[in-house]
Structure formats: C-alpha cells, structure tokens
C-alpha cells in the first residue's frame, strides 16, 4: 500500500498507508487526519479538501479537470501553484511516499 505523509498545520507529520484506488481525501478522513474537511464527501461540490502537493510529486499527478479547476478558484486558504483538491487524487503505486501539506484553513 502506498504511504502518504500529511504535513499538518502544527508542523507534525502523520503517515498513513492507504490502498491503491482510494483518494487522498478518503485516506485522510478515514484516518482522522485533521485539517481536511471534505464536507461534500468527494463529489466535487465544495473545496474543503484543499491541499498543497509537495513539488516532488506534483508533476506525477494527472491534470485537474474543469470542475476541480473551478472549485480551486474558491479555496479558503492561499491558492498556490501546487494546490489540488485531495478528493480528486486517486492513489496509484507511483505515488508511494506522497507528501501532502495541509493548508491553514478550509473555511
């Protein structure tokens, strides 16, 4: 199972093993990683699972679709070039070791 390292707001890191096919958001919620709210539960209608993907992994991800791009316009924390919605990142073997930074706020 790929491992995801979540860098939390307080600077601590939570490492979570998650099955291939699960989204980064689901891995965060199921493991009680704080700071990823995911109100809509992954149907891409809110923007409260916003994360910053570590640059080393960012290029490995497929491009965001139009719906995600639109929602990224409205994220509560600072929008950065590495901003993504974690519900739209599906885990694949190549993402093992993925580093995800949790933003300051989702609201």
């Amino acid at each position: 199972m790929p491992t995801i390292h979540f860098v939390l707001k307080d600077g601590n890191t939570r490492s979570v093993d998650a099955p291939i096919g699960q989204s980064v958001m689901e891995a965060a919620i199921l493991n009680n990683v704080r700071g990823i709210d995911a109100e809509c539960g992954g149907c891409a209608s809110c923007a409260t699972c916003h994360v910053y993907v570590d640059p080393a992994y960012f290029e490995r991800l497929p491009e965001p679709d139009d719906m995600e791009r639109e929602l990224l316009e409205g994220v509560a924390a600072e929008r950065r070039p590495t901003s993504r919605l974690s519900c739209q990142i599906a885990l694949v073997a190549e993402l093992d070791g993925l580093v995800i930074h949790v933003p300051a706020t989702q609201a």
Binding site: I29, L30, N31, N32, V33, D37, A38, C40, G41, G42
Partner: peptide
C-alpha cells in the same frame, strides 16, 4: 463527511 473519530 467526517472521520469516525470526529463523528464520535
């Protein structure tokens, strides 16, 4: 959607 821990 929230975690089981947060739901408790």
């Amino acid at each position: 959607m929230i975690s089981a821990e947060q739901n408790d």
